[in-house]
């Protein structure tokens, strides 16, 4: 049962060194990036993966879409348009495909985003985002299209993400979204998989002994 197991996690939490931000609801303007198949090489190009810590990747988020080869900001790119800002990134279908680099999730989070909305996420990216307190929020194609249009018409549009009740709304349009119960609990409480796995240590040891 979820409730019973939650206790184990809570006990583990005491030993947890770094707590992620807790996430319940978020109200913010959003940045529309209406491109499909945004791969993690675009989110953070390989040449910026050389750091050995998790911080600082935000500076190079979408580096080659954001800056030209002389490092001047490319005006047309959404992150360079002052009319767009906020903690929510809205992306086209199949967001985060390609390389498994968690640096992509770190870069988006480090830049200041807390939610990415799309109609479809690649698997590994989705896991990486959830493991870092970044909510990958899946909406229907129709809602996504409406959202893009609304934000473009009015960049001040506030998007409300209600994780508790699994609802997202903006300017009169609302949609429910699915999120796995376990992952939701993790997001809301700011803990991740390792806490749970560490609590299984003796069972894992026992399994390892008989497993050939």
């Amino acid at each position: 049962m979820l409730i019973a197991c939650q206790k184990t996690i809570n006990e583990q939490l005491i030993t947890k060194q770094e707590m992620k931000d807790k996430f319940i609801t978020l109200k913010s303007t959003a940045v529309p990036l209406s491109v499909e198949n945004i791969d993690t090489d675009q989110i953070i190009p390989a040449r910026f993966l050389k750091a050995t810590t998790r911080e600082g990747f935000g500076d190079n988020l979408f580096r080659d879409w954001r800056y030209d080869s002389s490092n001047n900001p490319i005006k047309e790119f959404v992150l360079n348009q002052s009319k767009y800002s906020g903690k929510i990134l809205v992306g086209g279908k199949n967001f985060g495909c390609g390389s498994s680099r968690e640096h992509a999730a770190w870069a988006i989070y480090d830049y200041g985003f807390r939610v990415v909305i799309s109609s479809f996420f690649a698997d590994i990216f989705k896991n990486n985002a959830l493991n870092n307190g970044l909510l990958p929020l899946v909406v229907s194609d129709k809602f996504l299209k409406g959202l893009f249009e609304t934000i473009v018409v009015n960049p001040q549009t506030e998007v409300i993400v209600d994780l508790e009740n699994q609802k997202v709304s903006a300017d009169g349009i609302t949609e429910g979204f699915e999120i796995n119960k376990y992952k939701k609990t993790c997001m809301i409480n700011g803990y991740d998989d390792i806490d749970y796995l560490l609590s299984l240590n003796s069972e894992i040891r026992a399994f390892d002994l008989v497993h050939s």
């Binding site: 498994s100 680099r101 968690e102 640096h103 999730a105 698997d123 590994i124 896991n127 990486n128 493991n131 870092n132 796995n180 991740d192 998989d193 390792i194 749970y196 796995l197 560490l198 299984l200 240590n201 894992i204 390892d208």
Partner: peptide, 22 residues
């Protein structure tokens, strides 16, 4: 299958990973 760095840490620490069956 490929995993992210948080999962690398999980596997180093516990030899396990939390996964939904695809």
């Amino acid at each position: 299958f490929g995993i992210g760095t948080s999962e690398v840490e999980q596997v180093l620490a516990t030899q396990c990973i939390l996964q939904y069956k695809p």
